[in-house]
Write a protein that binds this DNA or RNA. Structure first.
Lengths: 225, 225
DNA sequence: GACGAACCTGAATGGTGATTCATGATTCAG
DNA sequence: CTGAATCATGAATCACCATTCAGGTTCGTC
């Protein structure tokens, strides 16, 4: 129904009590949808998990789907905030990528359930799913573009690189977080992955100690001066 | 029930007529599951699409899920065969990666529907989903490992790199095949992606003549000039 | 100390769809 | 031909929810 941003809720709670109940339901939905999947998880289960009656769910959400999409949007915001915060102080793009990858994997570890939820969104509500990745990719591509202009990284199509890096991170999360196995060494994996992506991005001359290279006039599409 | 490989069918057709009907049903299932999703696609729709009666489905498949998993396994075999064939003649790993990526994207373009099907497998039958990627990754990692031994590419954890490359390809397929947009230029994307991954994999010194050694001093100070 | 808004409850409704099965059609070896 | 092995049919069965709604309950406040 409501294509716009904030109003997926049927009614926003007017009291603290209501807000608390709504939050309880959302957390329960997270648990149920993550464990049983969207299609197999029932509102009855969600209500039970939240320790409220069935009908209570419909006081706060117009239907099953909207609780789900709210979870996806929430996760997107949290992840972007997490990445932003972790890399806020950093200047060098290669360094940012290293920290960003680790942050992503940590985030995934702390939110296994939500990770599964996003992936299901593709088949529950495509627009929500796309929004999750495109909004991530947008900021990513922009940052990469700026780093290219500054000559910090190789000059490539920013959107392409953004998707490459997201896909890489996504699969590492799938394999080393969701499918974690006995002998796995995530540090070794992170190390290899970072080497791979840094060399993929790095400009011809390897960075040594002064990451403040002046932008050589290579092929920069003369953005800022 | 049947954890093993080949017998997802309730009964294998005894006559050519039966085999034909079974195939018709499987193609119909592909269409329906791709268009409507596994959960929303019904056996009734599959039967209708295949132009057989509802009950006929159950002559050839024990249940809905097994037709689906058979599609996923089939796709895995086809994709691996496609990649193997496209790169059979090639020697250089970097070249193989370039061709492999293009082949994957072409394959995806030709099998949009199947692409969607694999992704759903994660929530329909996890083991089938994992099998799809792990069997791909296994061969991939092995090939990478050999290339590392030969000094064709950088020495990294092969499984990690395999997942990085699969993720990268997966996301490019998602964005530039499934989400294809008006102004998109897939050639440009392929070009950027290949540059990225080749630099990520390439050994520090461009291979010249004797690609024999495995690992030498890591921190090669004096880069080539 | 009672009034109303905000909340909460859970049985009942309605719809969907996987799977079964009794019955009929085809095929073909003998 | 003829019967039995195969194959095909689709109405009926059975389970499982999403969503509704006709009442209760709680809480702040005047």
């Amino acid at each position: 129904m409501n294509h716009h941003s904030g109003s997926s809720a049927k009614r926003k709670p007017a009291t603290a009590r209501g807000a608390k109940t709504r939050a309880k339901i959302l957390r329960a939905a997270e648990t149920v949808f993550a464990e049983r999947g969207y299609e197999h998880g029932s509102i009855a289960e969600v209500a039970k998990e939240a320790q409220v009656a069935l009908g209570t769910f419909y006081i706060y959400f117009p239907d099953k789907k909207s609780a789900f999409t709210e979870l996806v949007d929430e996760l997107g915001r949290k992840l972007r905030a997490s990445l932003r915060e972790a890399t806020a102080e950093l200047e060098d793009r290669l360094e940012i990528e290293r920290v960003g990858l680790r942050t992503f994997l940590d985030f995934t570890t702390d939110h296994r359930g939500l990770y599964r939820i996003v992936r299901q969104a593709e088949f529950v509500d495509e627009p929500t799913y796309r929004r999750y990745y495109t909004s991530l990719a947008e900021g990513y591509a922009q940052a990469l573009s700026r780093a290219m202009d500054k000559g910090q990284i190789r000059d490539l199509d920013p959107e392409t690189v953004a998707f490459c890096l997201m896909g890489l991170a996504d699969f590492l999360g799938m394999r080393w977080v969701l499918w974690k196995q006995a002998g796995d060494d995530i540090e070794r994996t992170l190390d290899s992955a970072v080497k791979f992506l840094q060399h993929g991005l790095a400009v011809a001359e390897p960075p040594q100690s002064s990451p403040r290279r002046k932008a050589r006039a290579s092929k920069t599409k003369g953005k800022k001066s």
